[in-house]
Design a protein around this nucleic acid. Structure first.
Length: 446
RNA sequence: GCGGUCGUGGUGAAGCGGUUAACACAGCGGGUUGUGGUCCCGUCAUGCGAGGGUUCAAAUCCCUUCGGUCGCCCCA
C-alpha cells in the first residue's frame, strides 16, 4: 500500500503543539487590539501580477513562487508574502476613503515559497504581520517596531537583536546605488560569482556578501548615510531618537538590505541570537514602502509593515526554554467498569460538559487499571468511578486525585459535588481581596 | 538551484553481508473480575524511508528516488 506523507517543506501542526500556537496567537491578537489594529484576511492566491511587479528583482518573486493556471487562463500565484495582497485589498476597497488614516491592519496565515527546506525555512510557513497605510511619520515607524518587539518580549523572547537601517527615498537610493556600482567595479574581478551577479542586479546586496566580507573594497565601500537626502536623513534620525526614547535597544546595521524590492527609508529586522536558530535567524523584519499603494492604482500613500515567521518564533522561544500554553488538564475522567455502567458514564460526561466541566470517559471497555492510567495521562482532577455495585443504589464514587479522597455520591449529585470541590479550591488558592493578584479566579478588567 | 550528512517499531536506539532484528521507554493484557502512580510476568517491526540491482544469502554492498538536517543562496 502506498505510504503517504506530507509534501516536502510542509508540516503538520499536531495537537501536542497546537497550544503553543494558540498561546502566541493570543498574545498577537491582544497586542494588536491594544495598538488599535484590525485583522484582514485575503485570498491565499492572487493574480500573479499582484506579486510579480515590474522591476522586481527579488528571489522571492522571481524564483520561489507557486504559480499555476487553470484551463490555460488566469495565471495565479500562491501568496509568498502578504504586503502585496494587503495593499491590493486596501486600494481595491478604497480604504483610503474611509477616513481615520492610517489604516492599521494585521494578518496571520500561511505563506508559500518554493525553496530548499531547512530549519526555519519551509515551503508552507506562517506569518503574522501588520501593515499601516496612509501616514509617513517616523514615530509610526517606531510604533511599528515597538509592536513587534513588545509581542516577542511578552512571549518571553530575550535573546534578540533589533537591527535598523534606512535605504533612503528613491533619490537617495539611486545615488547610492550608482556610487556602489562605481566603487565595486574596480574590484569585482576578484570577487565571488554571486557578487558579480549582484553588481548588475542589485548592488545594495553586495554589502550582504559573507564570502567577500573581509575584502578591502568592502570596508571602504561608500555608506548610505553619505548619500541620503536631507529629508531621509532627518527622518531616520527621528526614528532612532524615537526608539531611544521608548527604550528599545537597537543597532544601526548599515548593510541591512531587505529582500523585497519595494522598501524605502526605514528597514528593520529582529534576529534571535539563540543557538537553536540555525542559519535562519530572522524572526521578523519589515520596513517602509512609499510607492506601493500608487503602484496598485491608489493615491500617493506611504505604508509600513513587518512580517513575523511564526515557526521561527517558536524555534527561538523553545531554544530559550520558554514554556508556552497551559498544561493540559481535564476536570473529570469517568471510569466505567462494565458494559452495564457504560450508558451512565455517557450521561455523566454529558451533564458535566453541560455544566462547563471538561470531561472524558473510556470507550474501549478497558480494564480498571488501564482506565485509571488515563486519569493520570489526561491529568484529570477527579476520577469518577461508575461501578455496578454502587449503581444499584444509585451511587458513584468520586475520587479527588490531589487529596486521594473518595466520595460516594448519588449519580444525580455529581455536578453539585464538582461545583463544591472547584469553588472551595478557588477560595483556597486565592487570598487577595480586590482582585489585584496574579491568580485567574476573577476578571481584572471589568 | 548547489554542496555535505543522515533515514531501523509509537519513541530512543543496537546491529555494519548469514541473529527468531538486541535493549530501553511508551502501549496493551495479567498478577490484584471495584482504585492508578512501585514491582513482577506476558505481548508488541514477515520489518529496517521507497523502488530496483549484486549475492546461495542484504537492514547491512551498489544504483535510483523520497524525506529530514547542515552550509551556500535567499528570507519570515
Amino acid at each position: 500500500m502506498k505510504q503517504f506523507q506530507n509534501p516536502r517543506g510542509t508540516s503538520d501542526i499536531l495537537p501536542k503543539d497546537i497550544k503553543k500556537w494558540h498561546a502566541i496567537e493570543d498574545v498577537i491578537r491582544q497586542f494588536c487590539m491594544l495598538y488599535d489594529y484590525e485583522e484582514i484576511r485575503t485570498p491565499m492566491f492572487e493574480d500573479t501580477a499582484v506579486f510579480k511587479r515590474e522591476n522586481d528583482s527579488s528571489d522571492v518573486v522571481n524564483k520561489e513562487m507557486y504559480t499555476f493556471s487553470i484551463n490555460g487562463k488566469d495565471s495565479l500565484t500562491l501568496r509568498p508574502e502578504m504586503t502585496a495582497s494587503v495593499v491590493r485589498s486596501f486600494v481595491q476597497h478604497k480604504m483610503f476613503g474611509e477616513g481615520d488614516l492610517p489604516k492599521k491592519l494585521y494578518y496571520v496565515g500561511p505563506m508559500f515559497r518554493y525553496e530548499r527546506p531547512q530549519k526555519g525555512r519551509q515551503r508552507i510557513f506562517h506569518q503574522f504581520g501588520v501593515e499601516v497605510i496612509g501616514a509617513k511619520n517616523p514615530y509610526l515607524d517606531v510604533e511599528t517596531i515597538a509592536l513587534g518587539y513588545s509581542i516577542v518580549s511578552a512571549l518571553g523572547m530575550s535573546e534578540l537583536k533589533v537591527l535598523v537601517n534606512t535605504l533612503g527615498d528613491n533619490e537617495s537610493r539611486e545615488a547610492y546605488r550608482k556610487a556602489l556600482k562605481e566603487h565595486f567595479e574596480k574590484d569585482i574581478d576578484n570577487m565571488c560569482a554571486d557578487c558579480k551577479r549582484r553588481l548588475q542586479q542589485n548592488p545594495l546586496r553586495l554589502l550582504d556578501c559573507k564570502i567577500d566580507a573581509e575584502r578591502e573594497s568592502m570596508k571602504t565601500a561608500p555608506r548610505i548615510e553619505d548619500y541620503l537626502t536631507e529629508e531621509s536623513k532627518a527622518y531616520f534620525e527621528a526614528v532612532c531618537e524615537g526608539l531611544d526614547g521608548l527604550g528599545i535597544p537597537y543597532e544601526i546595521e548599515d548593510r541591512l538590505v531587505r529582500g523585497l524590492d519595494y522598501y524605502t527609508d526605514t528597514v528593520f529586522e529582529v534576529v534571535s541570537t539563540n543557538k537553536e536558530m540555525g542559519s535562519q535567524s530572522t524572526v521578523f523584519g519589515g520596513g517602509r514602502y512609499d510607492g506601493l499603494v500608487e503602484y496598485f492604482g491608489g493615491p500617493e500613500l506611504s505604508g509600513i509593515g513587518f512580517a513575523m515567521g511564526m515557526e521561527r518564533l517558536l524555534i527561538a522561544l523553545e531554544g530559550e526554554g520558554v514554556a508556552l500554553g497551559e498544561e493540559k488538564t481535564l476536570d473529570a475522567y469517568v471510569l466505567s467498569l462494565s458494559p452495564n455502567t457504560s450508558f451512565t458514564a455517557l450521561q455523566l460526561v454529558t451533564e458535566l460538559r453541560a455544566a462547563g466541566y471538561t470531561s472524558e470517559r473510556d470507550y474501549l471497555d478497558r480494564s480498571f487499571k488501564a482506565q485509571f492510567k488515563s486519569v493520570e495521562r489526561k491529568n484529570a482532577k477527579v476520577a469518577i468511578i461508575v461501578g455496578e455495585k454502587d449503581l444499584i443504589e444509585g451511587n458513584v464514587t468520586v475520587k479527588v486525585i490531589e487529596s486521594q479522597e473518595n466520595i460516594t455520591v448519588p449519580v444525580n449529585q455529581v455536578v453539585d459535588l464538582m461545583d463544591e470541590l472547584f469553588q472551595s479550591e478557588d477560595e483556597h488558592e486565592c487570598h487577595c481581596e480586590d482582585g489585584n493578584c496574579e491568580c485567574h479566579n476573577h476578571s481584572h478588567h471589568e
